[in-house]
Amino acid sequence: MKPTQPPAHDLRLQFIDWAKQHGHSPQTGAAPFVDLQSDYDLSGEQPTGDGVRERLRRDLAALGQESDVAVQFPPVYACTNSRGEQYRYSLMLVIAEDSVEWTGRVWRGLDYQGVLTGRGSGPRSNYTHLARMAIERELELPQPHYTRG
């Protein structure tokens, strides 16, 4: 008797949880998530093979276009420092009357690195740019100053 497989809907929910946990948006996380799945995991998506994987990648990436899914993900940015190390970080801003505080959660590949925080002031229209510059400047350091793991 063949074991019952989780329906495709369950795989999508697993993907959403995995993507948030690993600092991906649906667009950037679909391919790595599908690559991590075994053929057995995908056997509920009959038939198995590269066609199923490609279709699943497209379907999962498309979740980012669904407003009820997209709102669950903070903006995720990618950067490569001068040593060639590739990072992704999510960015959350808390905006006050004349300043901003930011929190960036950082990943390298699938490995969570920690949290970078900071604050600044200036024109509100530049707050995201200001936060990104500060986080990326910190990621240039050999040992970034993560505030918590």
Results as ranks from 00 to 15, higher is better:
G122A: 09
R119M: 15
C79Y: 01
T28I: 10
S121R: 06
S125Q: 14
G29H: 09
S125V: 13
A131L: 01
G120S: 08
G122P: 12
G149W: 02
T48G: 09
V52H: 02
G84A: 06
G51H: 08
Q14T: 12
R12Q: 12
S43C: 05
D50L: 15
H145A: 15
E45D: 10
V69Y: 00
Q86C: 06
G29P: 12
V69A: 01
G64D: 03
Q65K: 11
T147V: 15
Y127W: 07
S43P: 06
G118A: 05
G29M: 06
G51T: 04
N126M: 04
M133F: 07
F33N: 00
A61V: 05
F15C: 00
S67F: 12
R108H: 08
G51N: 09
Q113H: 03
Q21H: 12
A62E: 03
I95H: 09
G29K: 02
R58Y: 11
Q14K: 10
V34K: 02
Q113Y: 04
T117I: 12
E140N: 02
Q46E: 14
E54P: 05
R124P: 00
D59V: 05
W18M: 02
G44P: 05
G29T: 11
D59G: 07
E54D: 15
H22E: 07
A30F: 08
N126Q: 10
R105N: 10
D111K: 02
P32R: 04
L13P: 06
Q21P: 07
H24W: 08
Y89S: 00
Q5E: 13
L36H: 13
Q37V: 03
V115R: 05
N81I: 03
L130C: 06
Y127E: 04
E136T: 11
H24F: 13
T48P: 00
M92T: 14
Q46W: 14
E85T: 01
T128R: 08
G120Q: 05
A96T: 07
D41G: 12
G149A: 13
S125D: 14
G51W: 06
F15V: 00
D10N: 09
D10M: 07
I135V: 08
Y112I: 00
E45I: 03
P7Q: 12
T117R: 10
Q46M: 14
A8G: 03
S125A: 13
